[in-house]
Measured scan of single mutants.
Amino acid sequence: MKKYKITVYDEKTGEKHTIEIEMSEEELEELAKKLAEKHNVKVRIEKV
């Protein structure tokens, strides 16, 4: 498992949230996809 920083940005409201999380790359990609689809936000992932 690796550490990642996830930034979620909502273009409508301008809200931006960043968290650090430790998980596998596959789980992370699935999480990012679900966030983007369900909440209509942009998701950026960076390795820490």
Rank of each mutant, 00 (worst) to 15 (best):
K34C: 11
K12S: 11
L35I: 06
D10S: 05
E25H: 08
K38I: 11
R44T: 15
T7P: 00
E15K: 10
K5T: 06
K2E: 07
V8K: 00
K34E: 07
V48Q: 05
K3E: 01
K12A: 12
I45T: 02
E15I: 13
V48D: 04
E37I: 08
K3C: 07
I19E: 04
K3N: 04
N40L: 07
L31V: 07
E11D: 07
V48G: 04
E46Q: 06
H39Q: 10
I19V: 07
I45E: 01
E27P: 02
T18Y: 09
T18V: 13
I45G: 01
T13Q: 02
E20C: 11
L28T: 04
Y4W: 12
V41W: 14
I45C: 04
I21Y: 05
K2D: 08
V43M: 02
Y4G: 00
V8W: 15
E37K: 15
K16M: 14
G14L: 04
E15Y: 14
E46W: 01
H17C: 14
L28N: 02
L35G: 01
R44G: 04
Y9Q: 04
L35Q: 01
G14W: 04
L31D: 00
E30R: 12
V48C: 07
I21E: 03
L28D: 00
Y4S: 00
A36T: 11
K33E: 06
K33D: 04
E46S: 06
V41Y: 08
M1P: 06
E15N: 07
T18F: 06
K34I: 10
A36E: 08
I45R: 03
K5Y: 06
A36V: 08
K42Q: 10
A32H: 07
I6V: 07
I21K: 05
H17K: 07
I21F: 06
K3M: 09
H17E: 06
E15H: 10
E25K: 06
E29G: 09
V48I: 12
A32E: 08
H39S: 12
K47M: 15
M23N: 01
T7L: 04
V48R: 05
N40E: 06
T7I: 07
E15T: 11
D10C: 14
A36M: 14
K33G: 06
E15D: 07
L31F: 14
V8S: 02
E46M: 02
E29Q: 13
T18M: 07
T7K: 02
E37A: 13
T13R: 03
I6E: 00
K33T: 07
E27T: 09
K16Y: 15
K5W: 06
A32T: 12
A32I: 15
V8H: 01
K38L: 15
E11K: 13
A32V: 14
I45A: 02
I21S: 03
K33W: 04
R44N: 08
S24R: 11
K5F: 06
E20Q: 05
K47D: 13
V8R: 00
V43H: 02
G14N: 04
E25L: 09
H39E: 12
K16P: 04
L28H: 04
H17L: 10
K42R: 12
G14Y: 03
E26D: 13
E37V: 12
L31T: 04
M23G: 09
V41H: 06
M23V: 13
E25D: 12
A36K: 11
E30Q: 12
E29N: 11
A32R: 13
K47I: 15
H39A: 12
I6W: 01
K16W: 15
T18R: 03
L35N: 01
K3Q: 05
T7M: 05
I45H: 02
K16S: 15
I19Y: 15
I45L: 04
T7W: 06
L35T: 02
A36F: 13
M23Q: 02
I6D: 00
K5C: 06
Y9R: 02
I45K: 01
L35P: 00
D10H: 06
R44K: 13
K38G: 09
I6L: 05
I19T: 05
E11F: 13
K5S: 04
Y9S: 03
E29D: 11
L35S: 01
S24N: 11
K2L: 12
E26C: 13
G14I: 00
H39L: 10
E27H: 08
E30T: 13
E22R: 05
V8C: 12
K3I: 06
T7S: 05
I6H: 00
E37D: 09
K5H: 05
K38H: 10
L28S: 04
M1Q: 08
K16V: 15
M23R: 01
G14H: 05
I19K: 02
M23C: 13
E25I: 08
E11G: 06
D10V: 05
E29F: 14
L28C: 11
K16Q: 14
E37G: 13
E37S: 13
N40P: 04
K3V: 06
H39V: 11
S24F: 12
L28I: 11
M1F: 12
V8M: 08
I6P: 00
K34F: 13
K33Y: 04
V41A: 07
K5R: 15
E29V: 11
D10Y: 10
K16H: 12
T7D: 02
A36W: 13
E25M: 08
H39Y: 05
K12D: 12
M1E: 03
N40R: 07
L31K: 02
K16G: 08
K3T: 06
I21G: 05
K5P: 00
E37Y: 05
I6T: 00
M1L: 13
I21M: 09
K16L: 14
V43F: 03
K42M: 06
K2V: 13
K42E: 08
K38R: 13
I6S: 00
E25G: 06
T13Y: 02
V43I: 12
L35F: 11
T18P: 00
E46V: 08
H39P: 15
S24V: 08
E22V: 09
Y9E: 06
M1Y: 13
T18A: 04
I19D: 02
L31E: 01
T18N: 03
H17M: 12
N40T: 06
E20G: 01
L28E: 03
A36L: 12
K12W: 10
H17P: 00
E30F: 13
M23L: 14
M23F: 05
V43P: 02
I19S: 03
K47L: 15
E27D: 12
K16C: 13
I6Q: 00
E15R: 10
Y4D: 00
V48F: 02
E27L: 08
R44V: 15
K2Y: 15
E11M: 14
V8G: 00
E11W: 12
K47C: 13
K2A: 14
K38W: 08
Y9C: 07
E37P: 03
K33Q: 11
I21N: 01
L31P: 00
L31N: 01
K12L: 14
E22A: 06
A32F: 14
K12M: 11
H17S: 08
